[in-house]
Design a protein around this nucleic acid. Sequence first.
DNA 1: TGGAATTAGTTTCATTTGCAACTAAATTGG
DNA 2: CCAATTTAGTTGCAAATGAAACTAATTCCA
Lengths: 160, 160
Amino acid sequence: MSVREKTSAAEADGRLVLEDFLPYRLSVLTNRISHAIAREYGARFGLSIAEWRVMAVLGRFAPASANEVSERTAMDKVRVSRAVARLKRSGLIVAATDKADRRRSALRLSAPGKRIYRRIVPLALGLEAELIGALTPAERVSLDGLLAKLHARAEMLDRG
Amino acid sequence: MSVREKTSAAEADGRLVLEDFLPYRLSVLTNRISHAIAREYGARFGLSIAEWRVMAVLGRFAPASANEVSERTAMDKVRVSRAVARLKRSGLIVAATDKADRRRSALRLSAPGKRIYRRIVPLALGLEAELIGALTPAERVSLDGLLAKLHARAEMLDRG
DNA sequence: TGGAATTAGTTTCATTTGCAACTAAATTGG
DNA sequence: CCAATTTAGTTGCAAATGAAACTAATTCCA
C-alpha cells in the first residue's frame, strides 16, 4: 500500500480530484484576488480591472501600443481596445499616433492618469503584501521560480 | 548598494514592476490556461467552462446542491444556476428535489453525463500533466503548499 | 513598383456575466 | 403555532465579453 502520492497531479479511480487540480486551483485563487482587487480600487477610482491593467502597463512601459498592452496582460485585444477608449474619454491616458507606423498609437498616462496611478500603486502593493505575508522569504523566492516555469509552459500550451 | 531584493513584492521608484506583481502574474497564467482549456474541451464537447466545472464537482461529490457547487468552485450562484439549467436541458445531469429540503435540488450526472465526464477527465489530467511537466516532484509538492497558503490568505482578503 | 497578404485597431452582434430584486421553502423566536 | 428572517435558486436588466468581420496602414515579393 503506497503512501498517497500528493503531487498535484490529481486522479483516483477515473475521477478528477477537483480540489487538487492545478488549473482549477489557480482559477479559484485568481478569481478571489481579482475580486478583492476590483472592490479595493475598482470601486474607489471608478476603474474596471481591464482599465487598471492598462494603466499599470503604461505606468511601467511608457509609450506602448494597444497590442503591446494586450500581449503583456494576456487580455483580448477587443477588451484592451475598449479599456483604452474609456481611459481616453476620461482623460487618464493620451494617445499619439506613432510616427513610424500610423496604424499604431503610442499610449501614455496623462498627468491626471499618473496621479491616480501613483495613488493606486501603494494600494496594489499593500494588497500583494497581505497576500504573500503568508509566505517566508524563501517561499517567495520559490514561488517566483515556480510561476516562471508554469508561465513558460502555459505559453506553449496556449500557442502550440 | 543592496542586491536587488527579488522577493515577489514588486516596487521601484513609485512604480509597479508589473511583471513581478503576483496578482498580475497569476492572472496572466490563469488566463492562458483557461484559454487552452476552453479550446480543448469547450469546443470538443460543447461545454462552457462553467458547465465543465459543474460536471467536475458532480463527478466527484455525488449528489450536490447548486449551492454546494457554487461554494466548491467559487463561482457565482447565478453562473452555476445557468450552467445547471443548460446541463439539464442537454441531459447531462439530472436533478431530484431534495426530500429533506424542497428548495434544494440534488444534482447528479446522468448516464450520458458520466460518459462525457469519463472522456474529459483524461484530457484534463493530460493538460495538467503537460503543465506541471516543467516541475520536479519536489517542486510540485512545494507548489501545492504555496498555493494552499495563498488560497487561505486570498479567502480572508475577499471576505475580511 | 503595385497588388496580395499581414498587422493594428475598431465595430458589430450574439452571448455571458453578475448585481439586485424576486419566488418559494425552511427556520427562528415570541 | 405563526409572523419575521434566512436560505436556495431563478430571473430581469444592464454591462462586459469575445469571435468574426471590417477599415486603414504597412510589408512582402514577383
